[in-house]
Simulated scan of single mutants.
Amino acid sequence: MTVIRALAFDVFGTVVDWRSSVIAELERFGRDHGVSADWPAFADDWRAGYPAAMDRVRRGELPWTKLDGLHRMILDDLLAAQDISVSDEDAEHLNRVWHRLNPWPDSVAGLIRLKQRYVITTLSNGNVSLLTNMAKHAGLPWDCVISAELFGHYKPDAEAYLGCAALLDVAPDELMLVAAHPSDLRAARDAGLRTAYVVRPLERGPGRTPPPAEDGEFDVLATDFLDLADQLGA
């Protein structure tokens, strides 16, 4: 079996708790502006809107657009649907909540351990500035920040996975994708990468079942990053 030389991490939901972070910021936004809404549902709708927005880029309906731009388009539509009117400056500050997401409790400690043995990088649809600012905010100790923005292809396009391996100068099967989303892992596996499924049962809120995976479908199944470090000998 080929030796793993690098680990590439999906970020939203895998490394950071996007939902709780966004809900907390939306609640502050509501208090500051004297408006109310079902903020958990607003957060879910904001996140749910971005796959369709990416597909518009893939179909050529939109030019290549970094994730900040897609998030802002979705946000503007959601605010309009709620009849919430704020300044462009305030809307842009809210949009950048995705730069200020908080990590899961095990993320930083687990990454520090894994970093001792492997090159660790992001491989996210988030743009480079978003991922860099998030790392600064959350204390994420990446060796480098790799984004779909660098390839002009969002995951799950194969170009993102293969491009990450090429930038790190490793073979695809020397790179392991770590993610909480089986669909992402399946696309990485199909591109020749190794795979680690880290289950995040609270990503979409309490009482929701994590996406299922078949027994043995991925190279590693872990409960969190500390368990992943144990299994990978870090």
Rank of each mutant, 00 (worst) to 15 (best):
D55C: 05
D76H: 12
T14R: 07
F151L: 11
A138G: 09
R72E: 05
A196D: 09
L202I: 06
R200E: 04
V86W: 05
D169A: 15
A229W: 00
M1N: 08
E27P: 07
D88S: 11
R186L: 10
F29C: 06
N127Y: 07
R96E: 13
H153G: 05
R19H: 14
D38G: 12
G207C: 09
F29Q: 14
S107K: 06
L123M: 14
P182N: 08
G110I: 00
A160V: 14
Y197K: 08
L123G: 00
I84H: 10
V170D: 09
D45A: 15
D38N: 15
N133V: 06
V11P: 01
D190Q: 04
A158L: 06
S87T: 15
D227V: 04
K136Q: 14
W39N: 05
L67N: 10
K115R: 15
G110M: 01
I23T: 09
V15G: 10
V97W: 03
A135M: 07
V198F: 03
H71D: 06
E61P: 08
H137P: 05
A109I: 00
A41N: 12
R113Y: 01
V15D: 00
Q116E: 14
G152V: 09
H71G: 11
D44F: 12
I74A: 10
G13W: 11
V198C: 07
V170I: 11
R28V: 14
P212W: 02
V220Y: 13
D224M: 02
A52Q: 15
D44M: 14
S129G: 03
R59Q: 15
L94Q: 03
W142H: 10
L75K: 13
M1W: 08
E89K: 12
T195H: 02
M134E: 08
R189V: 07
E25H: 13
L193I: 09
L70H: 08
A6H: 04
F225R: 00
V198E: 03
L114D: 00
E159N: 09
P103A: 11
F29G: 13
F12A: 06
S183E: 11
P201C: 05
G233V: 00
P63K: 09
D38M: 12
A160K: 03
L202Q: 04
E203W: 04
A187L: 01
V198W: 05
G207E: 02
E203Q: 13
P156G: 06
A80W: 05
T195C: 07
F12M: 14
F12K: 08
R72Q: 13
A187E: 01
L185H: 03
L168V: 08
G110Q: 01
D38H: 12
F29A: 02
A80Q: 10
F218D: 00
A160R: 02
R47C: 13
V108Y: 06
T209N: 11
A179R: 00
D190V: 05
A187D: 08
A180W: 08
V16G: 07
G207M: 04
R96P: 01
G205M: 06
G49Y: 09
A171Q: 14
P105R: 09
V3E: 15
L228H: 00
E149D: 15
D76T: 15
V97Y: 04
H153V: 12
R194V: 03
P156A: 07
A43M: 08
L232Y: 05
H153Y: 14
L114V: 01
V198A: 02
E214C: 02
R186E: 12
L177W: 07
P206C: 01
H71M: 02
